[in-house]
Each structure stands twice: as structure tokens, then as C-alpha cells.
Amino acid sequence: MTTVPALSIRDLNVTFKTLLGQVQAVRGVSLDVAPGEVLGVVGESGSGKSVSFLAVMGLLPKSARITGSAVVAETELIGASNKTMRKARGAKIAMIFQDPLSALNPVQRVGHQIVEMIQAHQSVSKADAMSRAVELLDIVGIPQPKDRARQYAHEFSGGMRQRVMIAMAIANDPLMLIADEPTTALDVTVQAQILEVLERIRRDLGTAVVLITHDLGVVARIADRVQVMYAGRIVERSEVVALFEHPTHPYTQGLMQSLPGPTRERLHPIPGAPPNMLRPPSGCAFAARCPHSIPACSLEIPELRPIRGSESACIRAEELQEVLS
């Protein structure tokens, strides 16, 4: 990539102090998101996919210890002052969540909340900000945006609330939008609408999107590239078609094989459970559940390396090519 990435993360580590010890939630994550790109981030609960981006946004509790670097538009976000973070959040990088109701103010009209968001970063009059807010509600596909701007969050359905969140997130035209399971709480017919909105925003405004999800179908639908996370690390990163056609990591293959297909053929779960992140394994974290693991897998933590246009953190990726495709 010759262009400057919208977001650039280097060697991000997040640990949480708990009564039982240090939980190593994110262990050395590095990535670049190109302008206008949709990067899908896939992984199961506890894989560190949400925590990585909450760390970037400065939204983790104080018990979190964060090291590494995350740069958006030449601004370093890790360890940044509150003032810097306030300037960056919303204007350069914005985030939407699974549950829009808890993210909206219940006693303030929706339009007003968007106006506040605009005025926090731009010096415009209230009237101008309001007409911009109405315009934003229209962009995200809310009918009668003028009337809807005067309503409260409880008067909106789940899908409409998520649209409001997206309108707020894009209010200041950020380079980077982080969408953390934005459709998980929604019905499938509404999910399809929201994905359409995200696609349109990327296309029309050129906003880069990180889409965090556990749903491989959602990734297949809108991601350009996909990164698969397991036990706090990236185990594979590929262009979307390549990922589904020839995965380069046994965990990715395991995830896909556990999905039910159109036949009644028996399903193939991944045996075992993810490791305890208080004491992550010294080698590949997936080795204990991997059908292809050999003693060498447990010796040291495998790094992400290029293979056939993808990146894989499996030391046997080359020899397993046939088996994994």
C-alpha cells in the first residue's frame, strides 16, 4: 500500500489486571486499514477482537494496560491525552456498537444529539448543524428525517436506532469507522438494511470501515479483507475471496467447517475450548485444538507471515495448503 492508511496499528498489547492475575486479552496486533476499505475482523468471544479497537478508541477501563501504537491521520491514539482523544474521536475515528439504545441519550432529542456531535468538532451555527443533522438522517435512510430528528431514542426501532448511531458516527466525516457487531442484536431483514447503509457510506463518503463480527456470512457480504483473531492474536489475514476459498490457517478452516451447510450432513465442531488467557500457551494458542498440530507448534508463538497472497500464523501453512483448501 502506497497510500497513507486510514488507521495503522503496531504491536498492540492489552492486559487486564484481575484478582486472578493478568489477563492477556490482546497480544501483539498490527494492522493497516486503507482509506475506503472494509476490513472484517472475525473471531469468537474472548478472541480480543473488540478489546483491540476499544483500546484504540481509548474506551477501556483504567484496569487495562495498553502498549503499542495506533495512528489515525498522523495522530497517535495510544497514551494520548484526553484533549487529543476528544479531538480525534468523532472527527477522525468513530465507533458504533451492538446496542445502540445504551449509546443514545434517552432524554435528548435525536437531532439534538447529532447537533452536539457536529458542534463538538466544527464551528457552525446551531441552525446549520441541525440542517446537517437532518441531512445525515436522510443519508442513513431514515424516512421523514425532519420529523424524526425531533423524536427521542425510545421512539425508534432497533434498526432505526442503529441508523441514528451511524449518522452520529459519520457526522464529522471521519476517516475511519469502527463497527463493533453492529447487526448482532438485529433481525436478519433489518441486518440486511444496515449492511446496505454501511456499504453506501463506504462507497459515497469513502470512509474506511472495520467491521467486527462473529458472523462469517456478514464478512462474506461486505468485507474487502478479513482478519481472523484467536486468543488475542491475528492468526490469518486474507483478501475475502481467498479466505473462503483457501484458508491458510487451520482455525479459519475449523470455523468454516462448523457452519451448517444446505445438507443435513453432520456438523464438524472444533474440539476443546479456547485457552485461558491468564496463562496463554507458550506456542501457537490453537495447537491444543488443532487437528494438524505437531510438537514444533508449541515451541514458540508463530508470527504472521505471507503465504500465497495471504498472511498466516501457522508454521505448517505451506505443507497444509492442500488439506486446508
Binding site: 441486518q191 440486511a192 462469517l216 456470512g217 475471496v241
Partner: peptide, 12 residues
């Protein structure tokens, strides 16, 4: 038709 299929080529 709303269920996204885990196959990027078919899905698109």
C-alpha cells in the same frame, strides 16, 4: 434472501 451466505462470490 436476507441471510448472508458464507461465500463471498455467491453472496455478492
Amino acid at each position: 434472501s436476507a441471510i448472508p451466505e458464507p461465500n463471498p462470490i455467491l453472496e455478492r
